[in-house]
Design a protein around this nucleic acid. Structure first.
Lengths: 350, 350
DNA sequence: GAAGCTCTTGTAATCGATTACATCACGATT
DNA sequence: AATCGTGATGTAATCGATTACAAGAGCTTC
């Protein structure tokens, strides 16, 4: 049975130095003579000493931790990003706290608590629904400079945002389908109130217009990124009298479940319908047919967001710029898209 | 521009009481008279006060936080559990720190740091690879009572473990396939060193033996839970001269990619091969054909683990019992399993 | 050899809460 | 009327680190 956790005083005693010296050995070892430094480290080893985080945090007014706000932790898209955020932050000495904003407790309250009570130094949010009220609170506490958006953003908050080039992604998808001869392209959207889904949708519409494609209103099928919404969209698709020959889905989950449901309804993919997803989840390459999709660099997104936050935490000046960092997207051609048949290609709306 | 964060002294001043009273209002409001209590809360509201977590933690020697150690955060199986852990802990006033044990930094070191430096009060680990050394360290620091396994466990550490009934899962899978007439059943395993994978495998073998089924050595195909390993297993399967008619996979990811690769090789699922997975990932119900699998109650696992840890943190006595809580598993019959054809059923090994 | 530097180390204040102990007021008990 | 108990509040010690400031040692410089 061992004693309680040794404290800095115990180490100082064993090493025969003052607590200040021990503290210096910990935080700025180069300031000590080599002999004392070694004495101290020996004592640390001998006692099994670990700095008490709470005491250090109190004194230094830093938490050494970052909060990551995730909408739906269960979604593999987010958790990969989280993993990469974790990696960068850990390498820089920060702990990572997570909070799932889907939870019953009011996330705004929770987030401002974390930031204002000093539990964390900063926030990376993968959730774009940051309320104006929260923004105000953070601004008043001069905490707004320690917040970074990842994937998402909010037009009403002047915050940096690391995100994929969503518009480009949508264009790549349309161009790819167009090049294959498709002229009747549908789109299953993300949630209506989601800014990123809005960008994908409008870029889709604009690109179609540029290419002279007409989009029937019913071809814009509302979804919400989820598997369920993909299946629902498939039902709508197969029921259409003038069925599109291709569909661009706002997420891979939509695409995967849409494909599955279409097959159940007797459609062949990609012969009867070409499908493009968005995200490039790992599973996308492991289904049959494998999914053509727009890859988002999830690891890069997480890394960049973490790096941006660290930079901001280190720079004393609070700069509330709405800097935007675009992560590249890429068309991954797989097997759910195919050349339009003659009949499909000719079948342009009047 | 606002001043610095108000402290308890400021609140006390505004309310015209002592700091002790403010503190009591926060932690044991029933001990104050109604009038002062209201005065204090008014002052708190007026000043926008938030308790400083570091100061409170230092004084109370509690962190109000729990570390969750996750092997591979990017895996949807784990992240759902994490979400449910988060929910329960948040409801009980605990913050959740995560660490991905796949990371370069030595996870053992990191974990013991977190626990010994007071960053967290306890640990829930979804990773079974807790080293003996770490166990010793924690025991010496009398921290071993604050650790709970979730899904995984370690025979060498006397810790509570919340896990699925893996053996039952394997039996359910075998029984289901047997009832459909299958007599030649393969198994794609999890990682060889993974205790949970070992249980599934040995329960599979035992049940087969009980039913009088012979398992050719090559039908035990090594995998590691991953999509990649499922595809590899499929290659091995299709190349077998005496191909099994059914396969029980240690994870859904294995099953999904195995199915996909088998289809690429011209097999029809389930006509040529019945497949059972393990986990019941959300996607399992949204692929075509939808996956028959053993459901693990991921939400329940997370919840139970969190509740168990909270109980332990609240009880002063350190009880290092290796209590086991089994979460139920369930066979979810979907479309990747079918009655064995006459030829399949008759084809028993000599 | 006095002044001034640099380098190393120690003393003690400090971060912002919680809480043991003391005090006081007020009503009940004898 | 003296004593006691109870409830409400205040005073000050405390949690365990960091760090401003001071001080001493050893060197250089004029």
């Amino acid at each position: 049975m061992q004693k309680l956790q040794p404290k800095i005083k115990d180490v100082a005693h064993v090493a025969g130095v003052s607590t200040a010296t021990v503290s210096r050995a910990l935080t700025q070892p180069e300031r000590l003579s080599e002999s004392t430094r070694e004495k101290v480290f020996d004592a640390i080893r001998a006692t099994g000493y670990r700095v008490n985080k709470a005491a250090r945090n109190l004194r230094t007014r830093r938490a050494g931790a970052v909060l990551v706000l995730v909408p739906n932790l269960g979604n593999p898209f987010f958790s990969t990003i989280l993993s990469s955020i974790n990696e960068v932050l850990a390498a820089n000495g920060y702990s990572v706290l997570v909070f799932d904003s889907q939870q019953p407790s009011a996330p705004g309250q929770v987030v401002s608590d974390y930031l204002l009570n000093g539990s964390v130094d900063g926030l990376i949010t993968l959730d774009g629904n940051i309320s104006i009220a929260l923004g105000e609170t953070l601004k008043n506490a001069q905490m707004l400079g320690n917040v970074v958006f990842c994937c998402e953003w909010s037009d009403s908050l002047p915050l940096p945002s690391i995100r994929s080039d969503n518009a480009l992604g949508a264009r790549l998808a349309v161009d790819h389908l167009f090049a294959l001869g498709h002229r009747r392209i549908a789109h299953v959207t993300g949630p209506e109130d989601n800014i990123l889904a809005q960008v994908r949708r409008s870029a889709f519409e604009i690109r179609c217009a540029e290419l002279g494609l007409i989009i029937a209103p019913e071809w814009i099928i509302p979804g919400d990124f989820s598997l369920t919404s993909g299946a629902r969209a498939a039902e709508q698709l197969v029921a259409m009298p003038e069925r599109p020959t291709a569909v661009f889905c706002a997420s891979d989950e939509i695409a995967l479940s849409l494909i599955s449901r279409c097959k159940q309804n007797g459609l062949s993919i990609p012969q009867d319908l070409s499908v493009v997803g968005f995200d490039d989840l790992e599973i996308a390459g492991f289904v049959q047919p494998s999914l053509t999709t727009i890859r988002q660099d999830r690891t890069g997104l997480g890394r960049l967001a973490a790096e941006e936050l660290i930079t901001r935490l280190n720079s004393a000046q609070s700069k509330e710029t709405s800097r935007i960092i675009l992560a590249p997207v890429e068309l991954i051609k797989r097997d759910t898209t195919a050349t339009a048949s003659k009949e499909q290609a000719r079948n342009i709306l009047a």
